[in-house]
Design a protein around this nucleic acid. Structure first.
Lengths: 146, 146
DNA sequence: GGTGAAAGCCAAATGCT
DNA sequence: AGCATTTGGCTTTCACC
C-alpha cells in the first residue's frame, strides 16, 4: 500500500468524519482523487467502516473487564465464539495462545451484572473463567499505525 | 440520558459517517433536532469522536497480543502508563485489579517485532511481562449498548 | 491515477414555535 | 426542545488528461 494511502487511513483513524475536501488539503491531492482512494480502501477492506468513539461510563456501562476462558471438557469441539456471540455485553472475543483459549472484553453496569454475566458465559460455553477487572483506562484505541 | 439519544449513539456506533438527514429519518426527528442532539452528546463527552475501523492485517500489523505487566520493584511509584505512552505499538493500556497492574493491547508486524517491543516495555517501565498472543479474532469492537 | 467543473445534497446557523 | 428555512460547503459524478 502506498504512503499516501497510509496517510489517509491515519487521518481517518483520528477523525472518521473528516471531509474529502480536508483530506485533499492534508494530502495535497484533489477532492476527487482522495474520494477515489478512500473508496478503493473501503472496497479492499482496508477501511472496514466508521464508528463513533463513545464514553462507556456516560452510557451507563462503567465497569469493563477482561475474561479469559478455558473449556471444562477439552475433548468437546470448541465453538465458544458462536455460543457467546449472542451475549451483548461481550465487546470482543479473541482466540489466544497459552493456558486459556479465549480472551473476552466485556462491559457492564455493575459488579452484580458482571456476576450474572460470568454465570451466563460459564453455562453457555461450558468454560471456566478468569476475570481481570479494569480499574481505569489511561488510554484505549490509540491509532496503531506507523 | 434519553432513549432517543441512545438510539442516535447506537446508530453512530454502527456508522460513524451517517448523515444527520439519515439519523433524522431513522429516529423520526428533523435534521436540525438530530444535529443539536449529536452536538450536545459531543459536548457532554458521551461521543468522544469518530474513527475509521481498519483491518490491521491489511495495514501490515497482523500480530496482536495482550501483555499484562507487573512492576519488578513495587515500592517505586508506578507511572507505567506515562512511561509507555510513547510506544506506538501499544494500542491500549488498562489498569487492572489482580496479580498484575496493567493490561496492554499491542499490534506488531512480526514475532520478532513483538520480542523487540517486550524488551522496550520491560526496560522503560521496569516491569515483568506476561504475553498472550492473539491467534484470531472472532469479533472485536462490537457496539456494547443496550 | 489524477484533475476540475457541475449537480445535487448536506451541514450549520438563525429565528420561530 | 424541536422545526423550517437558508446559505455556503461538501460529496459525487463525469469528461478529460
Amino acid at each position: 500500500m502506498e504512503d499516501i494511502d497510509r496517510q489517509i487511513v491515519s487521518l481517518l483513524l483520528n477523525d472518521g468524519r473528516m471531509s474529502y475536501t480536508d483530506l485533499g488539503k492534508a494530502t495535497g491531492l484533489s477532492t476527487s482523487a482522495v474520494h477515489q482512494r478512500v473508496r478503493r480502501l473501503e472496497e479492499r477492506g482496508v477501511i472496514r467502516g466508521y464508528a463513533a468513539v463513545v464514553d462507556h461510563e456516560a452510557l451507563g456501562l462503567p465497569l469493563t473487564a477482561f475474561i479469559s476462558i478455558k473449556p471444562i471438557d477439552p475433548s468437546q469441539p470448541d465453538d465458544s465464539p458462536d455460543r457467546l456471540s449472542g451475549i451483548a455485553e461481550i465487546e470482543a472475543c479473541h482466540s489466544v495462545a497459552g493456558d486459556e483459549n479465549y480472551m473476552l472484553k466485556v462491559r457492564v453496569a455493575r459488579p452484580s451484572a458482571l456476576e450474572d454475566l460470568l454465570a451466563r458465559i460459564r453455562s453457555s460455553a461450558n468454560v471456566s473463567t478468569r476475570t481481570m477487572i479494569v480499574l481505569s483506562t489511561p488510554y484505549e484505541n490509540r491509532p496503531t499505525i506507523r
